[in-house]
Design a protein around this nucleic acid. Sequence first.
DNA 1: TCCAAATATGGAATGACGTTCCATAATGAA
DNA 2: TTCATTATGGAACGTCATTCCATATTTGGA
Lengths: 240, 240
Amino acid sequence: MEKTSTARQRREQSLTRAQIITVAIKLLDDTGESGLTFQALSKLLATGPGAIYWHVANKSDLMTAACDAIVSRTLGTTSVDVPPEEAIRAIALELFDTIDAHPWVGGALMHAPGQLPMVRIFERIGQQLRSLDVPAGREWAAVSTLLNYILGVAGQNAANAKLAKVHDLKRSSFLEDVSAAWSKLDVNEYPFTRSVVDQLASHDDRKDFVDGIDFILRGIAAEREKMVGPEGLEPPTKRL
Amino acid sequence: MEKTSTARQRREQSLTRAQIITVAIKLLDDTGESGLTFQALSKLLATGPGAIYWHVANKSDLMTAACDAIVSRTLGTTSVDVPPEEAIRAIALELFDTIDAHPWVGGALMHAPGQLPMVRIFERIGQQLRSLDVPAGREWAAVSTLLNYILGVAGQNAANAKLAKVHDLKRSSFLEDVSAAWSKLDVNEYPFTRSVVDQLASHDDRKDFVDGIDFILRGIAAEREKMVGPEGLEPPTKRL
DNA sequence: TCCAAATATGGAATGACGTTCCATAATGAA
DNA sequence: TTCATTATGGAACGTCATTCCATATTTGGA
């Protein structure tokens, strides 16, 4: 007599955390951040939510794990032997491209502070900065700046992707809407914004992103140069 | 005969969008991002969800409006007459303090790209950069960098606040947990992270934040100086 | 002055979702 | 063989955002 519920027998191929994460990634890529539900996951894995919860603590755990899978894969590309600043640019660009391809990674990254995926980035950047002779007392600030900037861009990308979906249209129409809204702003209150509305459509996200990295790197370098400059070695201007 | 539902008469003091936003802010401040529900809102406003929806498109609309109320209030403080870089620092710090006091603003800001709250910040920074003689072709990159950095920090603050709540404990214990996790990382794989674990507890978020702003400002300034340097005025190195 | 829109209101119903429960199987250790 | 552990998957639960709908009040036009 079949009971209302329960497992008749163990599945031929047992469920794996790795397997779950793989399917989760596929789901996120195909249907976006909102497409990852335990229902959809259950269907694809031919199981129930209960079984999934055996391998995964909760949704946020799953998201972070999926995010980490992507991030570690991205940063896994062995960095060739290039100067530190070049290496940082490369790391940043790899991340940008990855997040561009998987916008949900940006959102996941933002919601997992101090977690593995973020630490991986933190570490990679930190190592490069160390090769740059950034004074020990300034390392933290330098890494944080680069990391927070990257996270900011990542989050914006994720948010854009989500909004584009809501607008039922792709990036293009979303941009048009924002553009239209900006054009309606009061010229006296928003002179700057109004004057750059057209750049909203023409600018290149990726190039702007590297430019930002360059600004920060140049700022870090400028401080370093000042410290070994004419007056000799100054004490760090900031504490820590 | 009382019907099962419906409004007996119009409320003495009619519902207002502004009123709803005010209560929403109180709710967000008191109970965090997850505390804003239409149920809680209905109770506080002595009404039903239906009535609220008459004044507000949806939850995201409400969040953005609440966020904008806070941001516009923050940026509303008339900036005294200070040099542009100082003004940017001031704007950034005001925002930092605001987001520190209302972490949910960070989250809301991240999810409303191109919307009013973000545009306000964009505009304020843009105006100051214009006073700085940043070449027209570099304005967009410069503003974006500062904005994205600020958004990144804002998002991290919001995420930290949320996680701290999940940990059922305040910032302190959350930090301890992350600290413990970092200490367990493999030294060979994570030499940098391991070497700065102690700074996790000792560093000052607010100071690090300004340091980041300073790095970026210095990077922007460095480029400017180079352009008017010995070789004379160079063409912009980047397009746009 | 009267009536049809338009403007509001608030409670009920809906549907989706995360998460927990539970009955049950297979597995491993003693 | 037996008992605890590891797994499994479906049902049940509670919470939300959102929509529906019955109804009230106001407004504008004739």
